[in-house]
């Protein structure tokens, strides 16, 4: 039985909770060690949806500035870009515009973008209201959700909503044959022809 594969990449400033969202989704756990991500990690998860089964490849990118030049290569073959900010850090919210711009520049409207306000458990330190998040999402025509990876709030919903919007789902666009299939290489994240920008390091 054929299983559609989709690549999902997470972007956002350092320390907003990209890895924690993945960890909660994959293992339903939360790691308190506050460990930063080295380079780029990737994991796969099979999702059993109502009418089909899909395989999501989750790409967790380090927020560090030096790896920014790699981002276009990741966006290029991603079906989904999840752009995360920390609701207690206004700067991380501001920067999401830039991340979303980068994604749009690379993919236009041919990609699903989800804006995520993480860390709702820290409500006493909140700097960005839900309304502000919603407004920005509306302005930039992207999806929006607030989550807490720590408390396990809305994380499954985040990935389910994204999955439901993927091409090939009944309730969205009609099927377009091979157009719905996203071809992914199993080996490396970067295709050799992606050379612009030179040495990223």
């Amino acid at each position: 039985n054929h299983i559609d594969k989709f690549k999902l990449s997470l972007f956002g400033e350092m320390g907003v909770g990209k890895t924690s969202l993945i960890t909660r989704f994959m293992y339903d756990s939360f790691d308190n060690t506050y460990q930063a991500t080295i380079g780029i990690d990737f994991l796969s998860k099979t999702m059993y949806l109502e009418d089909r089964t899909i395989r999501l490849q989750l790409w967790d990118t380090a927020g560090q500035e030096r790896f920014r030049s790699l981002i276009p290569s990741y966006i290029r073959d991603s079906s989904v870009a999840v752009v995360v900010y920390d609701i207690t850090n206004a700067n991380s919210f501001q920067q999401t515009s830039k991340w979303i711009d980068d994604v749009r520049t690379e993919r236009g409207s041919d990609v699903i973008i989800m804006l995520v306000g993480n860390k709702t458990d820290l409500s006493d330190k909140r700097q960005i209201t839900t309304e502000e998040g919603e407004r920005k999402a509306k302005e930039l025509s992207v999806m929006f959700i607030e989550t807490s990876a720590k408390a396990g709030y809305n994380v499954k919903q985040l990935f389910r909503r994204v999955a439901a919007a993927l091409p090939g789902m009944e309730q969205t666009e009609p099927k377009k044959g091979e157009m719905t299939e996203v071809k992914l290489k199993d080996t490396g994240p970067i295709e050799p022809e992606h050379k612009e920008g030179g040495c990223s390091c």
Partner: peptide
């Protein structure tokens, strides 16, 4: 200059 190399060395 290879970005893959740079990632692997990280």
């Amino acid at each position: 200059p290879d970005p893959m190399m740079s990632l692997m060395n990280a």
